[in-house]
Simulated assay, not measured.
Amino acid sequence: MDFLKRRDENGVLLRSAVRVAIPWARSVIVCAINYNAPAPRSIDPAPNNTGWIARYAWSGKPSETEALIPTDYHDDLIARLRLIESGLQQHTPCETRCYVDTGPIVERNFATKAGIGWIGKNTCVINQSLGSWLLLGVIVTSLPVPETAELVLPAQDRCGTCTRCIDACPTDALVAPRQMDASRCIAYLTIEKKGTIPEPLREPMGRQVFGCDICQDVCPWNRKAPIAHKQGTQPRLELVNPALDWLAQMDAPTFKLHFKGSPLERTKRKRLHRNVAIAMGNSADPQFLPQLNLWSNGDDAVLAETARWAIEKIQSSSILPQTKLFS
């Protein structure tokens, strides 16, 4: 994640202010899309032989065969932003630039200033009506904000004394309210982290194989979060509590078939299998030993070491680990 440390020619951090990276910027349009789905939470009881893929990565679009084609929210949201951008430029010619997690823009900071929500103690933007299942995108423009424009006050912080997200984080990544140690976050570990995952963090990862929703699943503001009605997309049911052995048996063509064009493509098959091996070890289920033994003797050094750890964990588990559930 070194791109977060990029600086300009004067050594100023690009993400420190929008005009550092984009000198002509005068205003920012912030857009948010709800991605909640009518499906279980990661903290709900689930079969012991399943993993968890983050909610935002489930989406797909129907094809001619009615099978859902994988989609990525980056592509979906950027296309929507460019429609707005095109309409804006037709009405008022100006310089614009769109971003969805791809540039030197801290979207959540602008989201709070735009009144979309407040930054919760889990570091996510929370809207009082929509909860935190939000995808954010911005359009930076050269248009100044008119002096006569009605100012939008930042959303009031409504987390109060609640610390459920902090208490629920298995890896203690939320070191303080609104402060995250990204190197301990399960989303970082399963998606961005290359190579070996530190051993002390493997057991706390539980069954997470791509991303993590725990700090959002326990948030009271998400109890009544509405279901998203995104035209043309819907959750791919095979990705909700996916079977670990199904993920483990994927060769390169099968992985490409199921995940090309989806967020999981970023992680790639080898890293996904590394994560699956950890989830298998945490399951304490001996049925996974043949697959883990196969991996432990393979050419991928990281996967082989992780598989050996998982084998040892299963063999040393006399009883299944207890899972902490939240309501």
Score class of each variant (00 low, 15 high):
G131N: 06
R19K: 14
K224A: 10
L14E: 13
I126A: 02
A67C: 02
G120S: 09
L143Y: 10
V30N: 12
A25E: 04
L83T: 12
R26E: 15
V125D: 05
W118N: 05
I311V: 03
P70C: 08
P45D: 15
T161P: 00
G115P: 05
C215N: 09
P38T: 07
N10S: 14
L153Y: 05
F288M: 01
S327T: 12
P226H: 08
H74T: 04
I186W: 02
V28K: 11
W246L: 01
E150D: 15
Q208M: 11
K324Y: 09
E85N: 14
M1D: 03
A187T: 15
R19A: 11
N297F: 00
I314D: 03
C212G: 09
D251I: 00
H74Q: 09
C159M: 09
K256A: 14
F210K: 07
E95T: 11
V100K: 06
Y99G: 02
I116H: 08
P93W: 11
L272A: 09
R6N: 10
V106D: 01
F288E: 05
N241Q: 06
R184Q: 10
C169Q: 08
T141K: 05
S283K: 01
Q231W: 06
V28P: 11
D299M: 05
A301W: 00
G160Y: 08
W221G: 01
L189F: 09
I319V: 14
P177E: 10
K256N: 08
S318P: 00
I186V: 15
P242C: 05
R236V: 02
L68C: 05
I191W: 04
A25C: 09
K270A: 11
V140D: 03
V28A: 14
P146L: 12
R7D: 02
I166Y: 07
T65C: 03
A17K: 00
K268H: 01
V209K: 12
